[in-house]
Design a protein around this nucleic acid. Structure first.
Lengths: 156, 156
DNA sequence: TATTGTTATACTCTATAACTATA
DNA sequence: TATAGTTATAGAGTATAACAATA
């Protein structure tokens, strides 16, 4: 996305955006895209998407977590979770072991290499979040989170 | 995504989500995913994603709009815009014509078939938006939109 | 029977780079 | 020189369906 942002100038005058501008869904997606791109930039050296990073942090905080639980927390179905876990395993960032308590499940662990980076990942994730919310007060941030959770609940 | 949502039960107790729960970015993505899936459901018979629908509505409200302007409004680069426009053209929902004023540009128009559906698309888009915001008051919705715009601005 | 992981498949979205034409 | 569109390519995310192993 190297192209310049024209939004400031000729566009808004001549284009009719009334419907889109009114839709929360539109602004939700625009904010998400902006957040995603900023995340990619901040994690350039780690080459991680928000999804991939969330999976690693989840495993770091919950060693032995199963794929199904990761999918549930991050809103992915089993096949999608598989592809993300496969990708991170291929990059030697996580390990699969058979669960000892339920042999249907895989217990997931970070590799030493990744575990050593965990704190750095967390710090960058927080940094990213502070950046995207830099225009909001603490109070607004709390309200925003509650509203986003309500949207998720209304829709599931 | 036919699997059941386990979030209510065993998970939350045992899993440590403190970092993710604190991140606006996490809730933003979760809300966006939920909104996306609901949209796909509502538009099952039209087989349209939010993106594709937004492009059609934009063209419907701004006949002759160029690809570059669509990309700017919807946060897509030229290549991504191309792929969406190609797809909608292949489905006979829009037409490309050379712009008369600037022959580098293509002027985009809805086909008759699609123009006839435009009002229905708009109604469904509004219906979708009412659904995802059903847990919020009018005042909250306005606040939410402003905050989402601020996130987008902070990040661009 | 239900759940978890797996595999296969297909489509959409995103991103980069290089090319053509037009301004 | 810059812009708009195009093409090629690659990777990531999403979704469905079917299968095996395990509960």
């Amino acid at each position: 996305m190297k192209q310049k942002n024209h939004l400031a100038e000729p566009l808004s005058d001549s284009l009719n955006l009334w419907l889109l501008q009114d839709l929360v869904g539109y602004h939700l997606q625009q904010a998400e895209i902006a957040s995603y791109r900023k995340f990619i930039k901040i994690f350039t050296e780690h080459k991680l998407t928000p999804r991939q990073c969330a999976v690693l942090i989840l495993i770091g905080e919950n060693p032995g977590i199963s794929q199904i639980d990761i999918g549930t927390v991050l809103g992915m179905d089993r096949a999608t979770t598989m592809s993300v876990v496969d990708l991170l395993q291929d990059r030697h960032l996580l390990l699969r072991r058979r669960s000892t308590t339920d042999r249907r499940k895989h217990a997931l662990y970070l590799t030493k290499k990744c575990a050593a980076q965990l704190e750095s990942l967390k710090k960058k994730a927080v940094k990213h979040d502070k950046h995207i919310t830099s225009g909001l007060t603490e109070k607004e941030i709390e309200q925003l989170k509650k509203m986003l959770i309500k949207i998720q609940q209304a829709t599931s």
